[in-house]
């Protein structure tokens, strides 16, 4: 078996990735509906965070995984969405639908305005510019008195008995990002994104207006992250720049999407579930060294399944193929 064949088996399986993996992801989503019935506040928050990270990972996946523009700044959109809810709450509007709608509109506009100059950059330069946007926005918010500056502001939330509302809202946001990704990937839009990722010049020759589709991808990804932020803010009850623009919220979704499988439909969810789950368990049993295990886990997975865990689902030839793939990326 040639090297390219091994690589294809481990990393190429159509524009949506393995259908089995998608079915598994959706089945797990259905299972997650049951979490609030356990009446365990801790578990509910853990899984709500998993759903939140998953939604953000899908946002990143669309621009980074599908369109090939690796953004380090998706947390800017998450934070912007969270502050939308905070501002609405400060004006006496406490409605999750309004929160999510405002976050989506604001983020789409934000993404278009920022995207016009920034999406002209490629590769690492784009990555750094987006990181700059996220850090700058965090700094700016930390200095705006109207948004509570660095000391933050309270966001109204429902009483303890109805806390599950936030869980199901986040579940809906996550489901929307999964299904949205699935339908976008299979549509003409998805093919435009992948064509741009594979070769922007060749895509243009085939009639694809790269600027327009890159901005489309970025705006949708911004809405996904923003929606997650809009639900997070009232669920958390309090917002400040270090929470809204945290490094974890920036890095986790990227790691989750890549670990699960960037540019696939099931990858980000599976990545979020495994990573956040492992993080939680490790934190519980190895409180002092859990991040160490976390780091080790990332290193090991990258070395043994560089294109993401999701490809295990579609692996033809099982362990033998996988063993052969191990050396395929070696210099």
């Amino acid at each position: 078996m040639t090297t390219t064949a091994v690589l294809r088996r481990i990393g190429l399986g159509g524009i949506t990735g393995s259908p089995i993996a998608i079915a598994v992801a959706l089945a797990l989503m259905v299972v997650l509906l049951a979490v609030p019935f356990g009446h365990n506040g801790y578990l509910e928050i853990v899984f709500r965070n998993i759903l939140m990270y998953a939604a953000m990972a899908y946002g990143w996946n669309l621009i980074g995984g599908y369109t090939g523009y690796v953004s380090f700044g998706q947390v800017a959109f998450f934070g912007a969405g969270a502050y939308c809810s905070a501002v609405l709450s400060a004006h006496g509007i406490d409605n999750l639908f309004a929160d999510v709608a405002l976050a989506c509109v604001v983020n789409a506009l934000f993404a278009i305005v920022v995207g016009l100059p920034v999406l002209r950059l490629k590769g690492h330069y784009f990555a750094i510019a987006t990181l700059g946007i996220a850090l700058a926005l965090s700094d700016i918010v930390a200095n705006l008195d109207a948004l509570g500056a660095s000391s933050g502001l309270a966001v109204h939330h429902v009483d303890e008995a109805h806390f599950y509302v936030y869980y199901y809202a986040m579940w809906l946001v996550a489901l929307a990002t999964i299904l949205g990704t699935y339908f976008i990937a299979r549509s003409k839009l998805g093919f435009a994104f992948v064509a741009i990722r594979e070769n922007e010049e060749a895509a243009a020759v085939l009639g694809i207006d790269a600027t327009r589709y890159k901005i489309t991808a970025w705006a949708i990804s911004a809405m996904m992250a923003g929606a997650a932020g809009a639900v997070f803010a009232p669920a958390n009850g309090f917002l400040d720049p270090s929470i809204a623009f945290s490094v974890d919220s920036n890095v986790f979704p990227i790691v989750m999407a890549i670990l699960g499988g960037a540019g696939t439909v099931a990858g980000p969810f599976i990545g979020a579930l495994i990573l956040a789950g492992a993080n939680e368990l490790l934190q519980r049993y190895f409180i002092k060294i859990h991040t160490l295990f976390f780091g080790a886990m990332i290193v090991i997975v990258v070395l043994i399944l560089p294109r993401g865990l999701v490809w295990l689902f579609g692996l033809k030839g099982g362990a033998r193929t996988w063993l052969k793939s191990l050396t395929a990326y070696k210099a």
């Binding site: 160490l292 976390f294 780091g295 070395l303 294109r307 210099a331």
Partner: peptide
């Protein structure tokens, strides 16, 4: 080991090493 992988892979690897 992953020298010829997409740049994302190596990026993630260095992140893991940093955490370690």
């Amino acid at each position: 080991w992953v020298a010829r992988a997409p740049i994302l892979t190596i990026f993630l690897l260095t992140f893991g090493l940093s955490l370690l």
